[in-house]
Nucleic acid binder design. Sequence first.
DNA 1: CTGCATCCACTTTGATACTG
DNA 2: CAGTATCAAAGTGGATGCAG
Lengths: 243, 243
Amino acid sequence: MTRREFGQYCGLARALELVGERWALLIVRELMARPGRYTDLLEELSGIPTNVLSTRLKELEEAGIVERRIAQAPQRGVVYALTEAGQSLQTAVIALALWGNARFDAHQVGYRVPLSSLVMALRATFDREAAGGVTASWEIRTAGAVLHAVVTDGQLTSGAGPAPTGPDLTITVAADAVPPYQELMRAIGLGEVELSGRRSLLETFADVFIPRSAGSVPADRQPHPPAEDVTGPAGVRRSRGRG
Amino acid sequence: MTRREFGQYCGLARALELVGERWALLIVRELMARPGRYTDLLEELSGIPTNVLSTRLKELEEAGIVERRIAQAPQRGVVYALTEAGQSLQTAVIALALWGNARFDAHQVGYRVPLSSLVMALRATFDREAAGGVTASWEIRTAGAVLHAVVTDGQLTSGAGPAPTGPDLTITVAADAVPPYQELMRAIGLGEVELSGRRSLLETFADVFIPRSAGSVPADRQPHPPAEDVTGPAGVRRSRGRG
DNA sequence: CTGCATCCACTTTGATACTG
DNA sequence: CAGTATCAAAGTGGATGCAG
């Protein structure tokens, strides 16, 4: 076997072979919020050992999930970005994140809020219905971090860093550290923010990003009822030893 | 730190702390298809070491994902089942499985098809629209394996093992080993099956379970366009050393 | 038989130091 | 900036043992 495989013809097993190693999906999450360099990742993923980061990046590149790009002109150096295959992990990443969000004991003190988690939360809570026809762009600044959300005719583009086009409205939330999404949205909802730009877009923002109650999930993906309790009448159990 | 934590206030990180260890999600997948005993799991997950299985089961129980039940009457012994928190992983499991399915090189020879992967595939491809108002039950038999799908007024219940109520139609597909979902559905679509019961329900079956092209995903969960290429003009980058 | 616990070789991580 | 190198600790895989 090439490398730690499960040997099952099952999409889940395959997925775990590709992105199931420790730190792998967190790297993907980072790059989902914006392409970044090795040192950006080291910083954002605080705690990841350097050798593990470089190993994962190689594996993810090998697997066609991450792309190594050589940055041009002013920046130079290596920039890592997701391939299309990598982008398409977003559905799964969001599903896992919604599930995990519902399973925090409390707001752990000392836990950092990764900027990329806010970006994912924006994408997870974006309401296509409510955004129909909307075109606007926002930049959110808090505790030295910046992220943006650009809605173009109802389509969302969001990520870490300043808005590419220059935002219609900049929302600044005072905080010592990057706040969790719910707190950020609460502050915005309560107007505990500083605005710069088209202030009327604050309301639009609140309309378009609707925090679902943590862990809730779109209706067409609700879990099905569990299979029944029993292992089946003994006589009817699936025959052993195949055949 | 209690045990291998990431220390990030991020749903994804939390999810990975709880179900990110090797084999954990595969155990969840098995129990999603039906509750089972230790030895069932050992058999279905062929390859898992016994100590790893028992360690994972303890961790998953500790995390409130798996429940240990003492089976009564004829069976006796321990049966493992998912709690509600465990069930609610299904969205994420399906999302990962769809992604992974699109990333098989070919049908790997020698790879077993886990019965539970077929159950997940049924649930993933169930079309609520098409199933509106339908009430019917099917049992599928192939290569000694049995699974069922019960649709009650448009609601799906499915799992490994025989249909709890006695199926309206039994579909038997001849095969040496459990076939991958696409092959199974192709055989059914082509009528290369043996039927027993209300034969007219074969068409209903094909209408209600519509294999999406592997990796495709409901529209409201499409990935958003990637954030732009660059790390941003150097001067505007997020300030280091926290603001 | 089920449901593990133990032992051991091997691999992967984590932490840190160091280099082109 | 973008990694290697090194080493200890933890986790995994495989085999085996054993009680209820």
